[in-house]
Amino acid sequence: MDAGGWIAFGSGIVALLAAGFTFWQARTAADSARQASRQAQAAEDQVRIARDQLQQAERVHREQLALAERVHREQSEPYVVVDIGPAQSGSSLLVLSIHNTGPTMARDVRIQVTPALESTHASLTPRLTTAVSRTIPMLPPNRRLVYAFDTHQRWDTNLPMRYDFTVDAHGPQGPVEQLTYTVDLGVLAGYLVGERPMQRVEERLDSIGGHLNGLASAYEKANSEAIRAHRQR
């Protein structure tokens, strides 16, 4: 092989080596690109997870803050309760009560009732209507307004036994949540309504008297001889 042939052969070898090196570089570059792509995807996934965790933490924080604010507000708001029940244990008088059980002043208290209040005593009905139809300008904490409503005679009539009361009011921070109460007088049917206020005391005294009589009889039997001798003397 002459010099030209060796040169051509050498050139081919060099070209072949160059092509192999180029292929190796291309493959290495491709592997690096794939690795970089995977790293970039992993970084994006981490960023997305971190963003989701941050959003969730912010949402939980907002919910906790809103809950804390609501609890604080409810603890500082008036709480007006409307109810119907015996004036006292054993009383035959039923009363309508409007009671602010909250810690702050209730203002502009408005009450709606369905159906309209009605008593077996005709003179009480207009008073009850006025009591629930007018706006109460203010109701201090633990203030209780009481109105005569009816007696045990109600259970002998066809008058409504169930009432729904809706209460709206304002507290220190503005309007409070609307409250609704359902009062079922049928629940009181087996209660102490109509019983004499002192009936339980009387029954207890009668029971004590019976026990004392029994003790006296037992003592007399056990000491009959001594009692007879004492009487003879």
Rank of each mutant, 00 (worst) to 15 (best):
G5M: 15
W6D: 09
W6H: 09
W6P: 01
I7Q: 07
F9S: 06
F9N: 05
L16F: 15
G20P: 00
G20Q: 10
T22K: 03
W24Y: 15
W24L: 11
Q25H: 00
A26Q: 05
R27Y: 14
T28P: 00
A30D: 14
A30F: 15
S32F: 15
R34Y: 13
Q35P: 05
Q35L: 11
R38P: 00
R38A: 08
Q39R: 12
Q41W: 02
E44Y: 11
D45V: 09
D45K: 04
Q46E: 07
V47P: 02
V47G: 03
I49N: 01
D52G: 07
L54N: 12
L54H: 11
Q55S: 06
Q56C: 00
R59S: 08
V60K: 13
V60T: 14
V60N: 14
V60R: 15
R62N: 08
Q64G: 04
L67N: 06
A68E: 15
A68N: 09
A68I: 09
E69Q: 15
R70M: 14
H72F: 04
Y79G: 04
V81K: 06
I84T: 01
G85N: 13
A87H: 08
A87D: 13
S89R: 02
S89M: 01
G90K: 09
S91A: 13
S91I: 08
S92H: 05
L94Q: 10
V95Q: 15
L96S: 05
L96D: 08
S97M: 11
I98Q: 07
H99F: 15
N100Q: 04
T101I: 10
G102K: 07
D108R: 10
I111N: 08
V113K: 01
V113T: 03
V113C: 04
P115W: 00
E118G: 00
S119I: 04
T120S: 08
T120P: 00
T125M: 04
T125F: 01
L128F: 15
T129E: 14
T129N: 11
T130E: 14
A131Q: 04
V132H: 12
S133T: 12
P137I: 01
P140Y: 13
P141L: 07
P141W: 02
N142T: 14
N142Y: 11
N142K: 12
L145G: 02
Y147F: 15
A148M: 05
A148V: 09
F149H: 11
F149Y: 15
D150A: 03
T151R: 03
H152R: 01
D156N: 12
D156F: 09
P160Q: 02
P160T: 00
M161H: 08
M161F: 07
M161L: 12
M161G: 05
Y163Q: 07
A169K: 03
P172M: 08
P172F: 07
Q173T: 11
G174D: 02
V176L: 04
Q178P: 01
T180V: 02
T180D: 06
V183I: 11
G186S: 03
G186H: 05
A189T: 03
G190I: 00
E195I: 06
M198F: 09
M198N: 11
R200Q: 09
R200S: 03
V201R: 13
V201K: 12
E203Y: 10
E203T: 10
E203A: 12
D206A: 10
I208M: 12
I208G: 02
G209D: 10
G210Y: 13
A216L: 09
A218I: 13
Y219M: 05
Y219L: 03
S224W: 05
I227Y: 07
R228M: 10
R228P: 04
R231A: 03
R233M: 08
